[in-house]
């Protein structure tokens, strides 16, 4: 998903980006109890791979207790989801163990099942008579603690460039020079359509300023100017791992930031009363 943000400054945009990556809660496998593992992968490697499988939680992840703060002993339904995995290869050919083999013990969560991944996510392969039998416990967490909880594969924003072409000077160029001008940009920002230089997508610009350098070399420094749009506009791209929808991540991250600020606001009020600070 992409969206634009304007009427604010880079600090806000950056806070959104940082919270999406590091502080938006999701569910991921955190504890693994291995009963039998005769696969080529060792227990640690297997557990690590299980942790990285996106888990889709059917409900509001934010309402789930953190396992660390839950008042239960060990884990419970309010702070975790349990999974089971039992695969044994009794055939001659090597088989694949995938996320489809991971069976949820409650209907609150499932491993990511996406139509673009019909075979699921490969966990490991099993040779003849090899077996994996384990239970896994998924808990709530954030990317700050371990990247497996980060719901995004990409969360970036870009300043919208402002590119101004001087068409009067451009018309003075020979067709060959116009072609050279278009070719000067390594990011291919410019194209020629019906003999005119056009910009199909300003966001292709990577601020190399090669076009400005070219214009200076041919003695027409006013041919083109590239700068950041003022006031700034940001274009966000959010791509998820599948555990949450992009819109959910943006909403969740905005709630997280507001909660953080609310907490400090409240503490400041109590501090003021305690320390009799000037109002």
């Amino acid at each position: 998903m992409t969206f634009s943000l304007e009427g604010t400054d880079a600090s806000i945009a950056n806070a959104l980006r940082r919270v999406m990556i590091a502080e938006t809660p999701t569910v991921a496998i955190h504890f693994v109890r291995i009963e039998n593992n005769t696969s080529p992968l060792n227990d640690e490697m297997l557990s690590h791979r299980l942790g990285l499988i996106p888990i889709v939680y059917r409900g509001d992840v934010r309402q789930l207790n953190s396992n660390r703060d839950c008042d239960c002993q060990g884990n419970c339904a309010r702070c975790s989801v349990e999974f089971e995995l039992h695969v044994r290869n009794d055939g001659e050919d090597t088989i694949e163990v995938t996320s489809h083999d991971l069976r949820a013990l409650s209907d609150m969560a499932v491993p990511l099942d996406d139509e673009t991944l019909p075979r699921g996510i490969l966990i490991c392969k099993l040779g003849k008579f090899q077996e994996i039998r384990l239970t896994a416990i998924a808990t709530k967490g954030v990317g700050k603690e371990h990247a497996k909880w980060s719901p995004v594969s990409t969360a970036v924003f870009q300043y919208e460039p402002s590119i101004r072409l001087n068409y009067r000077l451009l018309d003075e160029l020979s067709p060959q020079d116009r072609q050279n001008f278009v070719g000067s940009c390594p990011a291919r920002v410019f194209e020629i359509q019906d003999g005119r230089v056009v910009i199909p997508d300003v966001y292709r610009c990577t601020y190399t300023e090669e076009c400005m350098r070219w214009a200076e070399q041919v003695g027409k420094p006013d041919l083109v100017t590239v700068k950041q749009l003022e006031p700034p506009r940001f274009r966000f791209s959010v791509e998820t791992t599948g555990s949450l929808k992009p819109a959910e991540i943006v909403q969740s991250c905005l709630i997280t930031i507001q909660e953080k600020i609310r907490k400090i606001e409240d503490l400041l009020v109590t501090k003021q009363e305690e320390q009799q600070l000037p109002q």
Partner: peptide, 28 residues
């Protein structure tokens, strides 16, 4: 004073994010 300025700043930020949230929701 610093405490009042900090309080005002937090309130403004709260407004900013609430506004982004509601605008985002209507855009969905």
């Amino acid at each position: 004073n610093p405490v009042a300025a900090f309080q005002h700043c937090l309130a403004e930020l709260q407004k900013e994010f609430a506004s982004i949230y509601s605008q985002f929701e209507t855009q969905l």
